[in-house]
Simulated assay, not measured.
Amino acid sequence: MLRFLVRRVLGAAVIVLLISAITFFLFFALPSQPALMSCGKNCTPDALAVINRNLGLDEPVPVQYWHYVVGVFAGRDLTVGHCPAPCLGYSFSNQQPVWDTIMDRFPTTLSITLGAAAVFLVAGVGLGMIAAAFRGTWVDKVVSSLSLLGHSLQVYFLGVVALAVLVSGLHWLDNPEYHPITEDPVKWFTGMIIPWLVLSVIFVANYTRMTRSQMVEQLAEDHVRAARAKGLRRRTVFFRYAWRGAMTPIVTLFGIDLGSLFGGAIITETTFSLHGLGRLAVTSVSETDLPTLMAVMLVGCTAIVVANIVVDAAYAVIDPRVRLA
């Protein structure tokens, strides 16, 4: 297991490095000059040259990337001063440390991701198990129909409807807003309810359908039928044999979804005007802000590869047949 995790971590580091290199070099393929954003309207060639030198944009692109990678692990000296590790540079648009901006936006995205993931995992798996347990009955048909309906909806549509009904119409909830959980847990919870519910409706449909199909498949396996023939209780067969065997693909899907959500829920944060990593990514692209864009990309791809490593390691716990050499 340890050797497997070491290999996976090394492979993940290579993937993150490749993604950062591709993003960095593609940025400079764009026909834009980031220094013009800091130069202003009355920009002269001499002033532009000074800004390029201060930002390190007067060096070859491979050299700039090397300095960037070294700065992430060891820090680096910039014109504005020493940038300690992990140094992600300074924003081209506001000249603020990118690391501070990431840490300021990070809790919002983390709250959206973990809260929504907990809701849609419990609700989706629970509804899928109910549909499988009552397969062929009206309960199964209702759950399957609702999951199909939820799968057809989109965040930007459902989010606007939720705001119009729950906030403006019924006045049951306030507008979504992030409050630090350490300062006021109640406001943190109430401010995140609508984003959690909206995201959950979309994802619950996927988990309901997958859980139902996997449970139906597992209930038809030979070892499950053998357990029934031995006279074990229906509940024991359902949870101890069928449910455990159905969890492997669900855990795989959950790891991918969790990493993707954590990488930046762009549509969700834009719909509810929440200042998280997803909205920061949109802003950095529109403003051609390479340091900020690189930081968001690194956080996003790191979240995805870490989630996949955790999922792979969890296989051995869920399914004893899996052996990690």
Rank of each mutant, 00 (worst) to 15 (best):
V237I: 05
L293K: 05
F239H: 12
A246N: 03
M247T: 01
V251W: 00
H275Y: 02
A307I: 02
V311G: 04
G264M: 12
S260L: 15
L280K: 13
F262Q: 13
L290Y: 06
L277A: 03
M247W: 00
R240C: 01
Y315W: 09
I256D: 10
S284A: 15
T270H: 07
L258Y: 08
F239T: 10
A307E: 03
I309A: 13
C301E: 11
L293W: 07
E287L: 10
V285T: 10
I267Y: 04
L253G: 14
G300R: 12
G278R: 00
V311Q: 12
N308Q: 11
V306K: 05
G278Y: 02
L293G: 06
I266W: 09
T288I: 14
F262G: 07
R279S: 12
I266E: 09
F238K: 09
G245T: 04
A307G: 07
T236H: 05
A303I: 13
C301A: 09
A307M: 04
C301Y: 09
D257V: 05
P249W: 06
A281S: 14
F239Y: 15
T248R: 11
L274R: 04
V296W: 03
R244Q: 05
R235N: 01
F238C: 10
D289R: 08
L258G: 02
A295E: 08
T271W: 02
L280M: 15
I266D: 11
V251G: 00
A246K: 02
V296Q: 08
S284D: 13
L298Q: 10
T252N: 15
R235H: 08
I256F: 15
G259F: 05
I309D: 13
I304D: 07
S286R: 15
L298D: 08
V285M: 06
S284L: 09
Y315C: 05
V296Y: 01
T252C: 08
L253Q: 10
Y315K: 09
G259D: 03
G278E: 01
S284P: 11
A265L: 13
T283W: 08
T268A: 07
R235D: 04
C301F: 14
S273L: 14
R279I: 12
L290V: 05
M294K: 04
E269V: 02
T270S: 13
V282Y: 01
G276D: 01
R244V: 00
G278H: 00
D312E: 15
P249V: 05
V305T: 12
G276A: 00
A303R: 09
T271F: 02
V282R: 06
V285R: 07
L277Q: 03
R244E: 01
V237H: 01
T236M: 04
